[in-house]
Computed example of a mutant assay.
Amino acid sequence: MKRYGAVIGLKPEQIADYKRVHAAVWPDVLAQIKASNIKNYSIFLREPENLLFAYYEYVGTDHDADMAAMAADPRTQEWWAVCMPMQAPLATRAEGDWWAGTEEVFHLD
């Protein structure tokens, strides 16, 4: 198992809508997340900075392939089309990334 964390901005005028859609994530999207070997997935919001922090545990054997399968899923693409306009990616993210990856500096089980 490997842990992943990422951050992204959230447009202030979109906070209520972002919370609303995440209170009822589409079942097909949830199923794809699980099929992509993601467990213990959470998204946290820090206001007033309007930063989202996502955390998940990956339990598969090929993260790149599982993430590619999720990205290719039509229903997930529809979900992202709803969510992405609400987000404000960080200017410092890696080229090609939407969410900016983070480095784990401490962990306690």
Rank of each mutant, 00 (worst) to 15 (best):
G60E: 00
T76C: 14
M67C: 03
M70G: 05
M67H: 04
H63M: 07
F53V: 13
M67S: 08
P48A: 09
D73R: 09
D62P: 13
Y58S: 05
A72D: 03
A72Y: 01
R46F: 10
F44V: 13
W79I: 00
R46A: 15
D64R: 11
W79A: 03
V59K: 07
E49S: 14
E57F: 04
P74Q: 07
Y55W: 12
E49G: 14
A71F: 02
L52P: 05
L51E: 13
M70N: 03
P48I: 09
L51Q: 13
G60R: 01
H63D: 07
E47N: 11
P74W: 06
Q77W: 05
D64Y: 12
M67V: 11
L51S: 04
N50Y: 15
M70H: 11
P48S: 11
P48H: 11
V59Q: 07
F53Q: 04
G60A: 05
Y55G: 02
R75E: 06
E57K: 13
F53C: 10
D64F: 12
Q77R: 15
V59I: 14
E49N: 13
M67L: 13
D66I: 06
A65G: 08
P74G: 05
D73A: 07
F53H: 11
V59Y: 10
P48M: 06
D73I: 08
E57V: 11
F44K: 09
E49P: 06
A71M: 11
Q77S: 12
F53G: 01
N50Q: 10
A71W: 02
F53W: 10
A65Y: 01
R46N: 11
M67G: 01
R46Y: 15
W79Q: 03
E78A: 10
N50L: 03
E78I: 01
I43Q: 09
R46E: 14
N50T: 06
Y58W: 14
A65C: 10
E47Y: 14
A68P: 04
M67W: 07
D64C: 11
M67E: 04
T61S: 10
M70A: 15
E57W: 02
V59S: 12
Y55I: 00
E47V: 15
R75I: 14
R46H: 15
D73Q: 12
L51H: 09
P48F: 09
E57M: 04
W79R: 08
E57H: 08
A68T: 02
A68N: 04
D73M: 07
M70D: 01
A65D: 03
A54Y: 02
A54V: 11
A68V: 01
D64K: 14
Q77T: 06
D62T: 06
